[in-house]
Amino acid sequence: MRPFRYEHAADREAALQAGRSAAAAAGEAHVRAPVQYLAGGTTLIDLMKLDVMRPEVVVDINGLARQHGEIRSGPDGLQLGALVRMADAAEHPAVRRDYPVIAQSLELAASQQLRNMASLGGNVLQRTRCNYFRDVTWAACNKRAPGSGCAAIGGPDRGMAVLGVSEHCIANYPGDFAGALAALGATVDIEGPGGRRVIPFEELHRLPGDTPHIETNLAPGELITGFSVPAGPWTRRSLYLKIRDRQSYEFAIASAAVALDLDAGVVREARVALGGMVAKPWRSHEAEAALRGHPLTEGSAQAAAAAAFAQAVVHGEDRFKPELGRRTLVRALLQCAAMEI
């Protein structure tokens, strides 16, 4: 870790003021931006210790919990403040009852200690676990050092992405909660030097393309203040299925966030997002379209899974991942259809 200046923002205005200097100082690369917001710190501090991130100024935004630390559930949907802790959202009775996919995605992530610290806003911005990114002694990492290449391609790639990858980056987006937000069509509340804006959650993260160092569509100095999840007849029949080598405290090797609105077994609406092998939080409109209007059966679930992974790109050890992803989605859909609500 390198020395940095620590600032505490008492409220949103103070944070944005600090963020303005970030806007002035920043280049394009998110990872090496000189000003960083600090909430739970579960990603930032880790990466600072590893020397991956080297901020000059760290702006503690935990004071914003007074303005953006609430969970509100109503007929229109669910509002989640960015400073809500993962554990608090996972344990919230309305979230558990009406949005089980959200509660499960949070509960199956990390450990209780981490969930107690990590904020929802920070969680969706969690950085990849790609070891070539996290170990700075690898010279080639386009995400960390733009233009340097990708050491991960051709290396052990069991943990890498197969959907949305490019020849410049195959890093996997590791989060779980983001899958639930993507599936449910959530929006993101953003405040920044340019004012307030709301964007679909699906548009928050960017595909790596030839600019893997630009990870999101957040402008320098912008701050996520919350998420809105619209109500819908599908949210109660929803679940998050996470597949991993061990039973707990591990990132997904495959995951599926699914929500269904069924009418006598026929899919009126389906929501599908995939994880564990995706370059960014991955809503599968292809899978949803394949299900809509069809009875939810093994066959239609298989067809949806085939559609979801039609564009998968594999390199080596990761060759099994599309098949595992398909099986994960089929299992999730059938389990979801069988839910008693």
Partner: peptide
């Protein structure tokens, strides 16, 4: 669970941390 992964091109270990070098947790 346990396996130290090695990059065959460089003879370097890549999962040299206990998030990626898996050992059982209580739930296992």
């Amino acid at each position: 669970h346990e396996q130290t992964e090695i990059d065959l091109r460089t003879a370097r270990y890549v999962n040299h941390n206990i998030a990626d070098y898996l050992v059982p947790v209580n739930a296992d």
